[in-house]
Amino acid sequence: MTTLPPVVQQAIDAANAGDVDAFLALFADEGAVDDWGRVFRGHQAIRGWSDKEFIGVRVSLEVTGARRSGATTTVSALVGGDGFNGPSHFAFTVDGDRVTSMRITG
């Protein structure tokens, strides 16, 4: 399995810890979450999404694999919590020490 870039590991750790502030701090100011085609851009929009569908529903991410292509690391994970449960892929695009996008797919 590919070693995760520190910012990606920190994002997963923050989600698993239920720490939305730490999660948001990892995103660039104009960073975005693309949740199956629904795009949430900027910290306020990401927080609103996360409160309803991610950290706010006690998400848990069990990493099962990862692969890298350029600036993007795609993490395969088993998702648990009080929202969606099951396998998903999270494609994190990183610029330096910030996430510029996190795209969620099946």
Rank of each mutant, 00 (worst) to 15 (best):
M1N: 13
T2M: 14
T3C: 04
T3Y: 06
T3N: 11
P5E: 04
P5Y: 02
P5L: 05
P6D: 04
P6E: 04
V7A: 04
V8A: 06
Q9S: 00
Q9I: 02
Q10V: 00
Q10N: 01
A11F: 03
D13Q: 07
A14V: 03
N16Q: 06
N16M: 03
G18N: 01
V20D: 11
V20F: 06
D21C: 04
D21M: 05
A22M: 04
F23P: 02
F23K: 00
F23Q: 06
A25I: 07
L26E: 00
F27M: 09
D29E: 14
D29S: 12
D29M: 09
E30N: 15
E30G: 13
E30R: 15
G31A: 09
A32C: 14
A32Y: 15
V33L: 12
V33D: 04
V33Q: 10
D34C: 07
D35Y: 05
D35K: 01
W36V: 10
W36A: 10
R38D: 08
V39F: 11
F40C: 08
F40A: 09
R41I: 14
R41Q: 15
G42L: 09
Q44V: 12
I46V: 10
I46Q: 07
R47G: 03
G48A: 04
W49D: 03
S50P: 07
S50Y: 03
D51Y: 09
D51Q: 12
K52C: 06
F54C: 01
F54A: 02
F54L: 06
F54V: 05
G56F: 03
G56Y: 01
V57D: 02
V57H: 06
R58N: 12
R58H: 14
S60W: 02
L61P: 09
E62Y: 10
E62I: 08
E62P: 07
V63C: 05
T64L: 10
T64E: 13
T64N: 13
G65R: 13
G65Q: 13
G65M: 08
A66Q: 01
A66N: 03
A66C: 06
R67L: 08
R67D: 13
R67A: 11
R68N: 13
R68Q: 15
S69H: 13
S69I: 13
G70F: 07
T72N: 15
T72E: 14
T72V: 14
T73L: 09
V75R: 06
S76F: 12
S76N: 14
A77V: 08
A77Q: 03
L78N: 13
L78H: 15
V79Y: 06
D82W: 03
D82L: 07
G83R: 00
G83I: 02
G83E: 05
F84N: 03
F84R: 01
F84L: 03
F84H: 07
F84P: 00
N85T: 11
N85H: 00
N85W: 02
N85V: 08
N85L: 01
G86H: 01
G86T: 00
P87M: 07
P87G: 05
P87V: 08
H89F: 06
H89K: 14
F90C: 01
F90G: 05
A91P: 11
F92S: 01
F92L: 08
F92D: 04
V94W: 00
D95T: 14
G96S: 01
D97A: 09
D97C: 05
R98T: 11
R98F: 02
V99K: 10
T100K: 15
T100V: 15
T100M: 15
T100R: 15
M102A: 10
R103K: 15
I104L: 12
